[in-house]
């Protein structure tokens, strides 16, 4: 019953769904610019990264939620499935993937599309603690007026794994990093990411 109540609260309809969609769109259009999800979007306890499947998934969509905490992941799967009617599947088959933490190995197992079918790539949301921490990266490419440095809340290993998957656009994985306060940073597959170490030197 609690799950049903939470799912009902997490179901995004009408304007709320559109508002989340707008944030996701804007953050992809302006890579690295942090935007906040609309306040009071979900009941307490719902991870903000779930905004991606809750706003975009429906019964024609497949999704995957992966987390070290299997009990938490299972609860989140049930929640998203109940709220959206989307189908849960393995990472490689999923249209939408949510990672409970920035796990570099998990990125390797996602669909990234191809030159002919770039739209077949997964959309990825990664839950982090705080966008103000983690690796510092320099972003450049479409949507970036001039290269700039930003912290992304995820470790360098994760960012390097993402760089590997986005080496050859148009194939690649569009990614949103979401922190616990509901702040979102978008990294489309076309963004060139340079990962820096603590001294400001490029990590390769």
């Amino acid at each position: 019953m609690t799950l049903h109540r939470t799912a009902a609260g997490a179901r995004l309809q009408g304007d709320r769904s559109t508002a989340v969609f707008r944030v996701l769109l804007d953050t992809l259009a302006r890579p690295g610019m942090v935007q906040a999800l609309p306040p009071g979007l979900f009941p307490p306890g719902v991870a903000p990264a779930l905004a991606l499947p809750l706003a975009l998934a429906d019964l024609g969509t497949s999704f995957c939620i992966a987390s070290d905490d299997e009990a938490e992941a299972a609860a989140q799967r049930d929640l998203v499935a109940l709220a959206t009617d989307a189908r849960h599947t393995i990472p490689y088959d999923a249209d939408i993937v949510v990672l409970g933490r920035p796990d570099p190995e998990a990125v390797g197992g996602l669909r990234s599309g191809s030159d002919e079918l770039p739209e077949a790539a997964a959309k990825l949301a990664v839950q982090v603690e705080d966008l103000g921490s983690g690796a510092t990266v320099v972003l450049d490419g479409p949507g970036v007026a001039a290269p700039f440095a930003v912290t992304v809340g995820a470790p360098a290993e994760f960012m390097l794994a993402l760089c590997d998957r986005n080496e050859r656009p148009p194939a690649g994985i569009d990614t949103w990093i979401v922190d616990r306060r509901g702040r979102v940073l978008g990294l489309p597959r076309t963004t060139r990411i340079t990962v820096l170490d603590g001294t400001g030197t490029e990590v390769s």
């Binding site: 769904s17 559109t18 969609f21 998934a57 429906d58 019964l59 024609g60 959206t84 009617d85």
Partner: peptide, 8 residues
């Protein structure tokens, strides 16, 4: 394109 599919 922004509307969810609610049922078949």
């Amino acid at each position: 394109s922004t509307l969810p599919r609610l049922c078949r």
